[in-house]
C-alpha cells in the first residue's frame, strides 16, 4: 500500500483542538455509554436483588485491590509517556508506554489467576445473574485492556522512531478511560457486599 499523503482536511483545525484528540473523545464518549448502560442495568438489578450480596461476598477483594493499584500506576506511566512525548523525546515516551503495557499484562495475569480460582470453586458464569454480570462486565473491560495494550504497542513502535508523537497522548487518554472504568467496576463488583 502506498503511503498516501495526508489530505488537506487533516491539516485544518478550526476549533483549535487537534482532530486526533477530538476523535479520541468521540471514541471515549461512545465507550462511556456502552459501559454506562451495562453498569446502570447492573446497579438497578443489584438494588432489586439484595440477596446478591451473598454471591458478591465470594469475590476476591484483595486481588481486585491489587489490580486497582496496578492499573492506577500504569496510568501514571502513561502520563509520563505523554510528558516525554511533549518534550519530543520519543525513545523515552516509548519506554514509558512499554512500562504501561507491562502493567496491563500484570493486570491480566492476576485476573486470570483470580478467575481460574473462582471457576474451580463453582462460581461460574451461569451460577447466578450476579456472576453473569461479573464476568460480562469485567470481561468486556479486560478486552479493552487487551485492545489498549495493542494500540499502545503500535504507538510505542512509532514513537521510538520519533514518529507520530501526538498519538502518545491519545493512547494515554484511552488508557485513563480503561482505568476509570475499572475504578467503577471495583467497588461495584468487589466492595459492595
Amino acid at each position: 500500500m502506498s503511503t498516501a499523503a495526508k489530505p488537506i482536511a487533516t491539516l485544518r483545525s478550526v476549533t483549535g483542538v487537534p482532530t486526533g484528540r477530538l476523535a479520541m473523545w468521540w471514541l471515549l464518549a461512545s465507550e462511556i455509554v456502552i459501559f454506562g448502560g451495562l453498569l446502570m442495568t447492573y446497579v438497578m438489578h443489584r438494588i432489586g436483588h439484595p440477596e446478591w450480596a451473598t454471591e458478591a461476598a465470594h469475590t476476591n477483594t484483595v486481588a481486585g485491590a491489587v489490580n486497582t493499584v496496578v492499573l492506577l500506576s500504569s496510568s501514571l506511566s502513561a502520563v509520563l509517556a505523554h510528558q516525554a512525548a511533549q518534550t519530543g523525546n520519543g525513545k523515552k515516551a516509548a519506554n514509558y508506554l512499554w512500562l504501561t503495557i507491562l502493567g496491563a499484562c500484570m493486570f491480566l495475569v492476576i485476573k486470570s489467576f483470580e478467575w481460574t480460582h473462582e471457576i474451580k470453586e463453582g462460581f461460574v458464569l451461569t451460577r447466578s445473574t450476579f456472576w453473569s454480570f461479573y464476568y460480562c462486565a469485567a470481561g468486556l473491560h479486560a478486552l479493552h485492556v487487551i485492545a489498549g495494550s495493542i494500540a499502545m504497542a503500535i504507538v510505542a513502535i512509532d514513537a521510538a522512531k520519533g514518529k507520530e508523537l501526538q498519538r502518545v497522548e491519545y493512547a494515554g487518554i484511552y488508557w485513563h478511560f480503561v482505568d476509570v472504568v475499572w475504578v467503577f467496576l471495583f467497588p461495584l463488583l468487589y466492595i459492595a457486599k
Binding site: I34, G37, T126, S132
Partner: peptide, 20 residues
C-alpha cells in the same frame, strides 16, 4: 446505542452461554 450494545452482549450470552 451504547446501552443496546451492552444489551446485545447480554443477549448473546443468553443465547449461547446459558446466562439468564
Amino acid at each position: 446505542v451504547g446501552p443496546l450494545i451492552a444489551g446485545a452482549v447480554m443477549l448473546l450470552f443468553d443465547q449461547n452461554f446459558g446466562t439468564f
